[in-house]
């Protein structure tokens, strides 16, 4: 019920403010920005997977659509980046809404396979529609500019992403402790109980799907402008798995879990260095070890241990 002063949010703010002072060079800023962008997408996916218990392994598809819609709207149609980002989000929301209805009728594995199929379709379209997307070679994207002011260096990007990350965390924490958030968690925990409590579970699944897709879209748009160059790989299967792994490793339904999951899965491959082709193996291993040793994910398990120790 606490409002402004959520301890986790304050801790995140402090970390985000202090972190840059420990960065020796711009490479560290780059990694931090990528963590932040992934974390925003993971926080969104957590609303669907962690809150509502509907597993998606195609969410990079929405990330990719957001990125490419931003790129195409700004370069081919001359939209200002913010308008393009908004347009991309609206487009993704509509698309997610249209596919959610038939898709979410599916249960368990069938739903997961359907999201996988969606991701593959997006990847194929982005790869084949070379006229718009530059095909497998990718396309370049202009910088993010707001009212003539342009985000140039990593430090400015760091500030922007840090602020947006704090907003995303706040929105997610708010939702968790609201009637809608409880409805999502209830349909995850005991769907019939939710139904007889008057919760339209099908409608809530659709809404969670749409909202999580919009988070991915915004993260995708930002990634496009930040990178300056995008390829269809952004929407690839590996990226989808990575996002889902961030949610599971961090802890289902835990907002900070999604952030920590994003940090781990972005930083670890950097530490492991030249393991590029084994990245998939590393993710698989992380996922497996989490499932075995921390089945509820990092944050919920640690919170439980702390609470027991405190007693």
């Amino acid at each position: 019920m606490k409002r402004a002063l959520h301890p986790g949010l304050v801790a995140t703010l402090v970390i985000l403010v202090l972190l840059p002072f420990t960065f020796p060079n711009s490479y560290f800023f780059d990694v931090a920005i990528r963590v932040g962008l992934s974390a925003i997408a993971a926080i969104g996916l957590n609303l669907l997977m962690g809150f509502a218990g509907q597993v998606s392994i195609g969410h990079a598809g929405f990330l990719g659509i957001g990125a490419y819609a931003s790129a195409i709207l700004t370069s081919s149609y001359g939209w200002p980046p913010l308008a393009a980002m908004l347009g991309a989000a609206v487009l993704v929301a509509l698309l997610a809404f249209l596919i959610a209805k038939p898709m979410l009728k599916l249960k368990g594995h069938a739903l997961t396979i359907a999201t996988l199929g969606f991701g593959i379709i997006v990847l194929i379209v982005l790869t084949n529609e070379g006229r718009w997307t530059g095909g497998p070679d990718g396309m370049s994207v202009g910088p993010l500019a707001v009212a003539g002011w342009q985000l140039g260096n990593e430090k400015q990007w760091y500030v922007l992403v840090a602020l947006l990350l704090l907003v995303a965390i706040r929105l997610s924490l708010n939702l968790y402790d609201s009637p809608a958030g409880r409805a999502l968690r209830a349909l995850h925990g005991a769907e019939v109980a939710a139904k007889v409590a008057g919760i339209d579970t099908a409608a809530y699944k659709v809404r969670a799907f749409v909202i999580s897709a919009v988070f991915a879209s915004v993260a995708g748009s930002l990634t496009a402008h930040y990178s300056g160059f995008i390829t269809p790989g952004l929407a690839g299967f590996l990226r989808s798995i990575e996002l889902a792994t961030m949610v599971v490793v961090g802890g289902m339904a835990s907002t900070f879990g999604a952030v920590i999951g994003a940090a781990l899965l972005t930083v670890l491959p950097q530490l492991l260095g030249g393991l590029e082709s084994y990245e998939m193996v590393a993710f698989g291993l992380i996922l497996m070890l989490t499932m075995i040793f921390l089945p509820r994910g990092l944050v919920p398990t640690l919170r439980e241990r702390l609470r027991r120790a405190g007693k």
Partner: peptide
């Protein structure tokens, strides 16, 4: 639940 504001956006705000 039925007696509360059920909106997702309301919940996030």
């Amino acid at each position: 639940h039925m007696r509360q504001n059920q909106g997702l956006l309301a919940g996030m705000a």
